[in-house]
């Protein structure tokens, strides 16, 4: 069977999805994804010329509503869920990695 997805592609896809796959897990994920994508390719046998794609099966179209804030007054409950907070703000590590600014 020809390869549907390579280890490099799996690494790339993981990067796009903000995931890191460790080197020792890469062959395992690659083999599995390769098999599944092989299954996906069976769809090429279906004649879909001129067939509209379906993205949703709702019976609703363009539902409008007033733009009114709802259930908004829960600042402390929201902050209680954050992993790190300070003075009513959510704390995160530095956004710009300054170690590369040394030139």
């Amino acid at each position: 069977m020809t390869e549907k997805i390579s280890e490099d592609q799996v690494k790339h896809v993981a990067e796009l999805a903000k995931l890191k796959i460790n080197a020792d897990q890469l062959p395992y994920f690659t083999t599995q994804l390769d098999q599944i994508i092989g299954l996906f390719e069976t769809l090429s046998k279906v004649d879909t010329d001129g067939v509209e794609p379906t993205s949703s099966v709702t019976d609703q179209i363009n539902v409008m509503r007033e733009d009114i804030a709802d259930n908004w007054n829960q600042r402390q409950a929201l902050l209680d869920n954050a992993p790190d907070t300070q003075d009513g703000y959510i704390r995160v590590p530095v956004i710009i990695d300054e170690s590369e600014d040394n030139n």
Binding site: L33, F40, S44, V46
Partner: peptide
């Protein structure tokens, strides 16, 4: 992780038509 990667792959440039769009047509 597998599902996120499968989805990211199916939607990514160069693969969208062969995978996501095709699946949506088969759904029809």
């Amino acid at each position: 992780k597998r599902r996120i990667m499968l989805g990211t792959f199916s939607l990514s440039a160069g693969f969208y038509d062969a995978y996501f769009k095709k699946a949506a047509q088969v759904r029809t």
